[in-house]
């Protein structure tokens, strides 16, 4: 069994990788990918806490709540990627680019 703190550190590291990716990328699809990595890090954290709770308290609903929320995050991530990619396609139709810096029509 791994140690909880190690797993949490892995999650934190993945999350920060995601943050770096989001900040440094200008290709919108890659930006979305980094966002997915951040969500994945959160999932790892939720599952860790679920397992940690199950080791301390033996009620079924509480122990699995973390896993349930992981599923919710997956569902929300799927919805988000669906919308995000649709927006990218629409943007590409309009401007022929997937550059994050090209979509500046909302400035000022």
């Amino acid at each position: 069994m791994p140690e909880p703190k190690v797993v949490l550190f892995l999650a934190a590291f993945l999350f920060c990788c995601g943050v770096y990716g989001v900040l440094s990328r200008r290709h919108l699809i890659m930006l979305l990918m980094s966002l997915e990595l951040m969500l994945n890090a959160i999932n790892i954290m939720l599952v860790t806490f679920s397992r940690h709770w199950a080791g301390k308290n033996h009620d079924m609903l509480g122990s699995h709540a973390g896993q349930f929320f992981t599923l919710m995050v997956m569902a929300v991530a799927a919805a988000e990627v669906g919308i995000g990619l649709a927006i990218i396609v629409a943007l590409y139709r309009r401007k022929h680019t997937a550059d994050a810096d090209a979509a500046t029509d909302l400035k000022n």
Binding site: R25, R26, H27, L28, I29, M30, L32, M33, E36, N40, M74, A77, A78, V81, G82, L85, I88, V89, Y92, T97, A98, D99, D101, A102
Partner: peptide, 27 residues
């Protein structure tokens, strides 16, 4: 199932649609 199966395929498809493979492609 969800990430590797569904999401990755969606990303691939949109990459195909937009025809922007690298960072340089977009500017």
């Amino acid at each position: 199932l969800i990430y590797a199966g569904a999401l990755a395929v969606m990303f691939l498809f949109v990459l195909m649609f937009t025809d922007t493979r690298t960072e340089e492609d977009v500017g």
